[in-house]
Simulated scan of single mutants.
Amino acid sequence: MWFDSWSEIARTAAVGSAAYVALIAILRISGKRTLAKLNAFDFVVTVALGSTLATILLSSDVSWTEGAMALMVLAALQYLAAAVSSRVRPVRAVMTAAPTLLLNNGKLLDDALAAQRVTAAQVRQAIRGSGAGDMTAVAAVVLESDGSMSVITSASVGDGSALTDVPRWPAPSHR
């Protein structure tokens, strides 16, 4: 179907514009955490927000008020979940993945790579991306809860205090 009516086009434009403004306002009010690098929970909320916005835009069965309320509920639940998980360790453990040590003192940890479904080539790419060219000059590569890889060179590891929440750290030569 190519065209229903001008009134449907006008409705989509008007409700879409209002829903867009509402979504921007809700995201600004809910804070930076809503748009931070995504862990699995944040990703689900982001997809739900997008799906809700699409439903508001395309379904005449959903009023703008209902859609705006749905967006507010999702943002409020994400805010509540973030607040609770930042204060209650067991909730945080359920909602966010722990970081994983993939490389320890220049040596790839094959069991960690396999468990996280990461290839050695991806770790080498992260190392190159950090500006290092020698794996033996890298103290640690950590797969973070948002899926990014942090590369800590031996020259910058210092006392390793930034790695205290990474299982399998401290590395034997840093104890």
Rank of each mutant, 00 (worst) to 15 (best):
D4V: 11
D4E: 14
W6E: 02
S7D: 14
A10R: 08
T12W: 12
T12G: 08
V15D: 11
G16K: 07
G16P: 04
S17F: 13
Y20D: 01
I24F: 15
A25T: 07
A25W: 01
L27A: 14
I29T: 04
G31R: 10
G31N: 08
L35F: 02
K37P: 04
L38W: 08
L38K: 13
L38E: 13
N39P: 02
A40N: 00
F41K: 01
V44H: 00
A48W: 06
S51F: 03
T52V: 15
L53K: 02
A54I: 03
I56D: 11
L58T: 15
L58R: 08
S59V: 04
S59N: 13
S59R: 09
S60D: 11
S60L: 00
D61F: 01
S63A: 02
T65K: 00
T65V: 08
G67K: 03
A68H: 05
A68R: 01
M69I: 15
M72T: 15
L74Q: 04
L74C: 08
A76P: 09
L77E: 00
Y79D: 03
Y79E: 05
A82V: 05
A82P: 05
R87Y: 10
V88T: 07
R89D: 00
R92E: 11
A93K: 10
V94C: 05
V94I: 11
A97K: 12
P99I: 07
L101H: 12
L102F: 13
L102K: 14
L103N: 02
L103W: 12
N105C: 03
L109N: 11
D110S: 11
D111H: 14
A112L: 10
L113N: 07
A114G: 00
A115Y: 02
A115H: 04
R117C: 04
T119Q: 08
V123E: 07
V123Y: 06
R124V: 11
S130K: 11
G133H: 15
A137R: 15
A140F: 13
V142N: 06
V142E: 01
L143H: 05
L143N: 00
E144I: 06
E144V: 01
D146G: 02
V151G: 10
T153E: 14
A155V: 10
A155Y: 02
S156F: 02
S156K: 14
V157A: 02
S161V: 04
S161M: 04
A162D: 14
L163D: 13
D165C: 06
P167G: 09
P172F: 00
